[in-house]
Amino acid sequence: MLKKRFSFEKYFPPGYEYSKERNTAGFLLGFGAVMSLHFFKNLLHAADRLYDHVQWRRVLRAGAVAPPFRQLVEDQWMLYIPLFLFLASMMLYHYFYYFHTTKSIYLMRRLPKRSVLFKSCVQGPLLYMGASAALLGVLYLSYYGAYRLVIPAECLP
């Protein structure tokens, strides 16, 4: 059986060259993800504060509680603001694409299904947003795994 290849094309305005948009979105997502590695610094710092240093040895402090995972990643959503702003602006850009070079907006507005024009403007960016959210979900799940590994069970909040 032939496998149906996934095509980005159908999520964008007809004839739209989406590769630049995909690459920019990828870059901004990567930028956010790389910057989020700062989490490990916070994690190691939080873990360090659970211990006392006695003669070059690390001793777990009695009753020490690590900060919750949420607190360690709390401000990281801001790293993805450029990505989401970019994707939101792309929705507008897709609409103006129909005025570029030709007036294909005339054709789009004449289509019997009203939703086609709207969908062609928002679907692609929403797809990227969804894919980014999924990737970030996996990334933060792995961060949580690291948190559980580094923080002793008795110190979990």
Binding site: T102, K103, P112
Partner: peptide, 21 residues
Amino acid sequence: CRKNISRLSFATCEHSFFANL
């Protein structure tokens, strides 16, 4: 309206096709 709009077609000197297609 949407129901009968396909009974009308349009050709314009401004062109309503998609240039990249």
